[in-house]
Simulated assay, not measured.
Amino acid sequence: MGDVAGSEARGAIGWRWVGLVFLIVVLWSLFGILTRPMGGHLAAFWPANAVLLGLFIRLPELAGPRGWSAAVLGYLAADIATGSSLDKAALLTFANLISVAACLLAFRRVPTEHVALSRPFSVPIMVGALVFGAVACGAVGTGMALRTIGIRTRQSHRCQARKPPSWASSSAGASSGK
């Protein structure tokens, strides 16, 4: 592999590292996609974000424009390769990026000794940073789920509840002696 520290001195990471970020995101995204339940559900286990976050925390120089671009292309490639439409893939990629970015922003505010887990109170602080990212992703993910997998809103349920059920008209005719 390339020398990340040397690349940082030049102001950009090497193309090998960009390729590595892309490959890691594609492979872990495919793993998450291929292990999800059938029926168009979202993945219950999605390691791609955690692995990307780990890379960006461990090697901060990867969290530049090239690294983020490689991650975007990796998420899109995995979704499109498995049959998602471009708009669905773009929405899910956006949600994934929000999750990683929110966690990364939280981790950048945490002192280095806590990231290295060298203090007794480091674990709760690290969990707090992860919870911040999870809440951000959950907020965005809720909106994305409404668009991508067609979850009905409360209003659409009310509109459907006003229509008489199909069994009501057939049973009314049967009970009236027709």
Rank of each mutant, 00 (worst) to 15 (best):
S85F: 01
P111G: 08
A116C: 02
A70G: 10
I98V: 15
T93G: 07
I98S: 01
L130K: 03
G74L: 12
F45G: 09
P60L: 05
G39Y: 15
G67M: 10
I33L: 11
I98E: 00
G83Y: 03
A48H: 05
A106G: 09
I80L: 15
S84Q: 12
Y75S: 13
L27G: 11
F45L: 15
V100G: 00
L105T: 05
A129H: 12
L34M: 06
V25Q: 06
A101V: 07
A77T: 15
L34I: 05
A50H: 04
L86W: 14
L73S: 09
G67V: 01
A71K: 06
T93N: 03
A106E: 02
N96C: 11
M126E: 10
A81S: 09
A43M: 06
L53Q: 02
L105F: 14
G74W: 13
M38S: 13
L130Y: 02
L42Q: 07
A101C: 04
P65S: 13
V51K: 09
P65E: 03
P111I: 11
R36K: 15
G74R: 14
L59Q: 13
R119D: 09
S118V: 00
A43H: 03
A70S: 13
S99L: 00
F121G: 07
A129W: 06
S29G: 07
W46H: 01
L117T: 00
E113K: 07
D87A: 09
T35R: 06
A63R: 05
F132V: 14
G39K: 10
I98W: 02
S84D: 13
F132R: 07
L62E: 03
L34G: 05
W46F: 10
N96L: 04
R36D: 08
L117A: 13
S85H: 09
A77D: 06
W68A: 06
L42M: 09
F121S: 11
L92Q: 11
V115Q: 11
T93Y: 05
L34E: 06
S85E: 12
